[in-house]
């Protein structure tokens, strides 16, 4: 469903000049969609020119944070139009956003908020994903988010919800293994049972990142190295399925590019050497 692009990094302003100057050993980059959409009343900003320069040397995927696919509100037509225009310019390998909601009644929280895992939420989300895919003319990937709150009236667990939504909508999955670890820690479930439910043929991309350990809970801060527990999930994934396009997200206290590439090489080694792959 999605080709293997190798091992990538999140594209961050801090590294732009170095990437353009040195063409580092990274297979692809993931750019944040909203950074290139401009304001509501402007055309796309000049930062697109910089992204296009990187696009000349690397495959690019676009990763959004504001689609709010699970909201009870209708989809934001202006956002979709701008997103599509950006896709036409950048020609990304694929595009993704989160299986969550970010706002309601036209108000935006600018956070990835948890959905209740209900049949009603599935129906709402599936309808929206289909609308988006029809509009964009391409399959999108939906990412599982980390969560701190679960609705007590949920009718299934998160992994079942994710699988059901993506199967019904016929979309891809961006599986964030760090988010699975964070949520499993916060809600007390076994992350391996989560992986048991994943329709692997739909998984086009994997996210890795490091959370902040608050003792009683984990917060998905993307400012730490990938934890041992998450690397174990990565290895578990490789035992269950074939190598999947992988990237490391690092959004705060961003280390030098060479250090990030070192973290990425850990994933590369697991794939190249350490793990017996599934047939």
């Amino acid at each position: 469903m999605f080709p293997f692009l190798g091992f990538g990094l999140g594209l961050r302003n801090k590294h732009f000049k170095e990437i353009l100057a040195t063409t580092p050993k990274v297979d692809w980059f993931e750019a944040i969609t909203e950074n290139y959409l401009g304001l509501s009343d402007t055309s796309a900003s000049d930062s697109i020119e910089e992204l296009l320069k990187i696009r000349q040397n690397y495959p690019i995927c676009l990763h959004g944070v504001s689609l709010s696919i699970g909201s009870a509100d209708a989809l934001n037509a202006n956002y979709l139009k701008k997103w599509k225009s950006l896709i036409d310019i950048i020609e990304p390998e694929w595009v993704s956003d989160h299986l969550c909601w970010t706002g309601v009644l036209t108000k935006n929280s600018h956070d990835l908020l948890p959905l209740p895992y209900t049949k009603e939420a599935i129906a709402n989300t599936v309808t929206k994903i289909k609308q988006v895919q029809d509009f964009l003319g391409r399959r999108i990937l939906m990412e599982n988010v980390s969560s701190y709150v679960e609705a007590s009236f949920s009718e299934m667990n998160e992994a079942e919800f994710l699988a059901e939504v993506c199967n019904q909508a016929d979309c891809g999955i961006l599986l964030d293994l760090n988010n699975i670890f964070v949520s499993s820690y916060n809600h007390g479930f076994d992350p391996e049972t989560y992986l048991d439910k994943i329709p692997w043929q739909r998984v086009g991309q994997v996210h890795l990142a490091g959370p902040t350990d608050k003792g009683s809970h984990m917060i998905d801060t993307h400012d730490q190295p990938v934890r041992e527990e998450t690397w174990k999930l990565y290895q578990s994934m490789l035992r269950r399925y074939k190598p999947i396009t992988t990237m490391i997200e690092w959004d705060d206290k961003i280390p030098p590019l060479t250090e990030l590439i070192g973290h990425l090489d850990v994933a590369r080694r697991f794939v190249n050497q350490g793990v017996v792959l599934a047939p």
Binding site: S109, D111, V149, E150, A151, S216
Partner: peptide, 24 residues
């Protein structure tokens, strides 16, 4: 309508979201 565990209460769980909402 939300769940909790002994070490991570409903109040603390919502506070994570509230902090992110305002701080961001």
């Amino acid at each position: 309508n939300i769940t909790e565990t002994r070490s991570f209460t409903k109040e603390s769980r919502m506070q994570v979201y509230a902090y992110a909402f305002w701080a961001r």
